[in-house]
Simulated assay, not measured.
Amino acid sequence: MQTSVTFKNLDPSDHIKNYIVEKLNRFDKYLHNPGEANVVLSVEKFRHTAEVNITGDRMTINGKEETEDMYSAIDMVLDKLEKQIKKGKQKVRDRRSNKGKAKTVMGGAGPVEREGERRVMVQNIEYKPMDVDEAIMQMDLVEDSFLVFTNARSDRVNVLYRRKDGNYGLIQPNP
């Protein structure tokens, strides 16, 4: 990671700079591409401030901490940045994993969202062969509004649904 350290109202110290560079190198395992870190260390009376800005992998992460000790301020801000990086990477993973799960009615990969259209999410389900009586018992157990199953007699996909009057309806394809 490319690191630049700026000292304000503080004598530049190689020991502090090496400490920061060593601590920032642990973030390389989270970033796929080389990152860039800008560190500003400042002292005002008894307040020691460490401000770190990291740019890399299409993310910009900022953190700032104030304490009475410079080393503790550095440690605290780096812990805060590590949490932010992990959270950002997890968001990317979650978005990528959801792409494959959602499918549209038209056969695309994801929800359809255009002006004037509705959003359609398709859920893939497993269905097993059973007769209509068994499907009714299954619906009573789960209390769903519909059930998709393969009719054991016709080997075709059927949909059993609960009507508003409490009875059941069956949708089946023509033979």
Rank of each mutant, 00 (worst) to 15 (best):
I16R: 04
V159E: 00
A109S: 09
N33R: 13
K17L: 01
R163E: 02
A102V: 15
E117L: 12
E65R: 12
R156A: 06
V92K: 14
T67S: 15
K17P: 00
L160N: 00
Q84E: 08
A109Q: 10
T67F: 05
E44M: 11
R162L: 13
V159I: 15
L41I: 05
P173M: 09
I54P: 00
N98L: 15
E44C: 04
P111E: 06
Q138T: 14
A152W: 07
K29Q: 11
K86L: 05
H15E: 09
V40C: 01
R119A: 08
A109I: 10
D155R: 14
S4M: 08
D75V: 09
P175N: 13
L41S: 00
T150N: 06
K91Q: 09
M59F: 12
I54D: 00
S145H: 10
E117D: 12
N25A: 13
L10N: 07
K45L: 04
Q2Y: 09
H48T: 03
Q84G: 02
V157P: 03
L147M: 13
Q123G: 04
V122E: 02
D140A: 13
D131I: 11
D57A: 07
Q123F: 11
H15A: 14
R114Y: 08
D69H: 14
I61D: 00
V132F: 05
Q123L: 11
K87W: 08
F149G: 00
E126C: 04
L41T: 02
G107I: 09
H48C: 07
